[in-house]
Write a protein that binds this DNA or RNA. Structure first.
Ligand code: FES
Ligand code: FES
Lengths: 144, 144
DNA sequence: TATAAATAGGATAAATTTGTCCGAAATAAA
DNA sequence: TTTATTTCGGACAAATTTATCCTATTTATA
């Protein structure tokens, strides 16, 4: 469904959010341990999230990655997916036609569109806040 | 969503079905032209579909690929996807945890499961017949 | 039986994704 | 100002997916 990079990015953002609630910045090393991902690759993905204003970074000693506590609730899963995997999952044809076009649909267009729209709504309506709180409460997990 | 191989496989199966209704066997060359895919790669994918009893092949002169006319209605999209991409799309964790486990869910488990279940039902309830008839009637297209 | 036509399948190559490494730039504190 | 720490970013490497090529095998017909 999503690329590995995107999976890591989502989990990283959730972990950073949980720590940001406690005023803590985190390093790629901590993140990689917490979400069970390759550290250097995770660092690369974090750069993309920084560029897309999902997380912010502070260079130098005592630096690290963090998310403004006031923004955690307004950041949606869709922003993260879009920053890393782009918008093909929303707009692309399920059978790989050059474009998903109502006027020239592939055989599964109608059925696919329904699923894709649900997915889009889900991603657009799921905030980092609820995911992070789920982790903090122990209801869900980021690894194993 | 699906791999390129799976996209080609679905389109190939649909095209073979349309021709099988008319008693015609088709070659990888014809198929690749009709679905706009690389010929040799498509031939490889056809082998997988043959092994998984989605299509049947006849070797030698006057041979080619075909689907038993009486089976077209009972072949579901899910069989094709399963034959090529396996079952991770149905059973795997959306965030790449080792397994999707109700007792140890990832943060998006509940929301993901709903989408995935819909997708599964869609694939299991969509037959090659309806897709092929859509193509024959000119309502949908396999390329461009 | 010989021949031509067609799929099967292995080896290989190209492209993309995933992953690693290291030096440059920035920053806080001593 | 110096030093230690940390992200940034480019180059590189490994793994996977996508794609190609060639030979073997099978089969209908002449
Ligand atoms: S044309 Fe294929 S999903 Fe719309
Ligand atoms: S545990 Fe992640 S989708 Fe079920």
């Amino acid at each position: 469904m999503f690329s590995k990079a995107c999976e890591y990015g989502i989990k990283a953002a959730i972990f950073i959010a949980t720590q940001s609630y406690e005023g803590k910045r985190v390093s790629p090393k901590e993140i990689a341990q917490e979400i069970d991902s390759p550290q250097a690759f995770t660092a690369k993905i974090l750069q993309a999230l920084v560029k897309n204003d999902v997380v912010s970074s502070v260079k130098g000693a005592y630096g690290g990655f963090e998310i403004d506590r006031n923004q955690i609730a307004s950041i949606k899963l869709s922003q993260i997916v879009n920053a890393i995997d782009g918008d093909t999952i929303y707009n692309g044809c399920g059978l790989g036609l050059h474009a998903c076009d109502e006027a020239h649909p592939c055989p599964v267009h109608d059925k696919f569109k329904a699923i894709r729209t649900d997915l889009k709504h889900m991603l657009e309506n799921t905030s980092l806040e609820e995911l992070a709180l789920n982790i903090k409460s122990g209801e869900s997990f980021l690894k194993i």
